[in-house]
Simulated assay, not measured.
Amino acid sequence: MDNVTDWPAMIGYLLIVKNEIDQRDLEKLQEYTAPRQKVSEEVLRGAESSLNVQFPVEYRNFLLHADGWKSFYWNTDLFGMLEFSGEGAAHVATEGLGVYEAEGVLEDLKLEGHDLIPIGAGIGSENLFLLVVSGDAEKVGTVIWIDGGDEIETFRGFDEFFAAIIEEHKSYLEEL
Rank of each mutant, 00 (worst) to 15 (best):
G98K: 04
L64I: 03
A121E: 01
A121T: 04
G122K: 01
F72M: 07
F84V: 05
G122I: 01
V105E: 00
L82K: 15
D77E: 10
S71D: 15
A93S: 10
G80C: 10
L63I: 08
A102I: 00
E126C: 10
E107P: 09
E112D: 13
G113R: 15
D67K: 09
W74F: 14
A66F: 06
G88E: 08
G68E: 07
E107A: 14
E112V: 09
L128C: 06
H91I: 10
F79Q: 08
F84Y: 15
G120D: 02
L128Y: 01
M81D: 13
A89Y: 07
K70G: 13
G86E: 11
L64F: 09
L116C: 00
E107D: 14
G104Q: 05
N127V: 03
A66H: 05
D67I: 09
H114K: 15
A93Y: 03
A93L: 02
V99C: 06
D108V: 07
G120R: 01
I119W: 08
G96L: 10
H114M: 12
Y73R: 12
L106D: 02
I123K: 15
A90V: 07
G68K: 05
D67Q: 09
H91G: 13
F84G: 05
S71I: 00
N127R: 09
G68I: 08
D108T: 11
L106R: 01
H114T: 12
Y73A: 12
L116K: 00
L64G: 06
G86K: 10
D67Y: 07
G80E: 11
S125L: 03
F79Y: 13
L78Q: 05
L82Q: 14
P118F: 01
D115K: 00
A121N: 03
V99M: 11
L82N: 15
L128Q: 06
G104C: 07
V92W: 08
A93H: 04
F84A: 06
